[in-house]
Simulated scan of single mutants.
Amino acid sequence: MSTLKFSANKHSDFSKTLRSRVNAYFKTHNISKHANKSMVSKTAVMLFAFFAPLILINTGIIHHTLLLFVLYTVSGLGMAGIGMGVMHDAIHGSYSKHRKVNKYLGYTMNLIGANATVWKIQHNVLHHTYTNIQHADDDINVPFFLRFSPHARRYWLHRFQHVYVWFFYSISTLMWITAKDFVRLTRYKKMGLLNREQEYKRELFKLIGWKLLYYSYALILPLIMVPLSPWIVILAFLCMHVVTGLWISSIFQVAHVMPSTEYPLADRDGVIENDWFLHQLETTSNFSPRSRFFSWLIGGLNYQVEHHLLPHICHIHYRKISHIVIETAHEYGLPYHMKKTFVSAIADHVRMLRQLGKTEMATVSS
């Protein structure tokens, strides 16, 4: 992968001021930047919501189809909660000041069928560093039938992507736990993001082992224990992933694939025009800042601006520090994108998908 660089020192005063003010907030209030009791409680709730329904299903006492679907759906919501509100912070290193705590909580990613190692490269390294940059941000490097960047090639079928994208969102976690992790692990090896052949083989072995474990208690054991037709159990399992996929994909995509966000390109020397902090402000959008429960439910991911600027801080603090970020951005005349509700954010996301489906490939950076 060719190395991209951000302009040095541009708007550096903003980043220094922001960090200083945020640090002062935590020092003044004598609180940690990491998880608090509320975060620990949420972790317990999400783990319970995921595992408790599966345990009930695997006891073999579930005889009713509707109840089976309800339990799998609840487990799907718990899966999404773990993904957005537990492992996300842990793998960023913001859950705890202790590396081992973050490491072991990061394995909750593996328990829900995905893989912490692959996610760390995809999300922490590629997405957070090169947000919305074509070919560098793996979140917008999608299959040919989707177009998430104005710099990607446009095909005639993209005119309808705002309609059919929801199907692919609904199967996204299912594809993730079956194929995508293997594809990305191999690609990251070719990109040089895994150090040695031995490291790749070790991670591949662990990847297979974790997925066998997940499928064992999430599908194979229920097929054995539940006294219903196998096709009903499989359908309920798929329903769980439809719920999880739609929920997670919608939350993550409305933060970046929006009419208000930018899609910068590097110059011939591989340099991005702005510094990294301004780049994050221009390529990221918040939504629904007033709903505390919604924010709790989705792991603070409605405060994506704060998360991208300060990923080392646990999401439980985003609502409070968002006022500091807004004030500092406005003080320096920098953008701060935000939609008032999740519904309006979804509407703008659909609008952006339609625009990307109709507009030809951009030839210059935004």
Rank of each mutant, 00 (worst) to 15 (best):
H127V: 05
I272F: 03
S41Y: 14
M87C: 13
R154L: 05
L212T: 04
I321F: 06
Q304G: 06
I326V: 12
H307G: 02
D138M: 11
Q161G: 04
I346C: 12
A152W: 02
L281G: 01
L219T: 04
I248K: 03
L310R: 05
S149I: 14
T178W: 02
E327R: 15
M258W: 01
G270D: 09
P335V: 04
Q122L: 02
E273C: 01
M109W: 01
L67V: 11
S260Q: 14
T131G: 00
S38P: 04
H98D: 04
K339L: 10
F294W: 10
L213R: 02
P222N: 11
R21M: 12
I220D: 00
G270T: 11
Y336M: 12
S7I: 05
Y263G: 08
S172P: 04
L4V: 11
L111M: 07
I57K: 13
S7E: 14
P289D: 10
I346G: 02
T186W: 03
Y215G: 02
N124S: 07
G76K: 00
H34D: 11
D89N: 12
L54A: 06
L301W: 03
I62D: 07
S75Y: 01
S172G: 06
D137R: 03
S365P: 00
L238C: 08
L238E: 08
F160C: 03
N124A: 08
S170N: 05
A236R: 04
L194E: 15
Y188V: 02
R354W: 11
G300Y: 03
G270Q: 11
S75T: 06
T17N: 08
F144I: 15
L207V: 14
T28K: 15
V118Y: 00
Y336Q: 12
W210F: 10
H123C: 04
Q280T: 05
V350K: 02
F342M: 13
K5N: 11
K33A: 07
T28Y: 14
E327S: 11
V233P: 09
F167S: 01
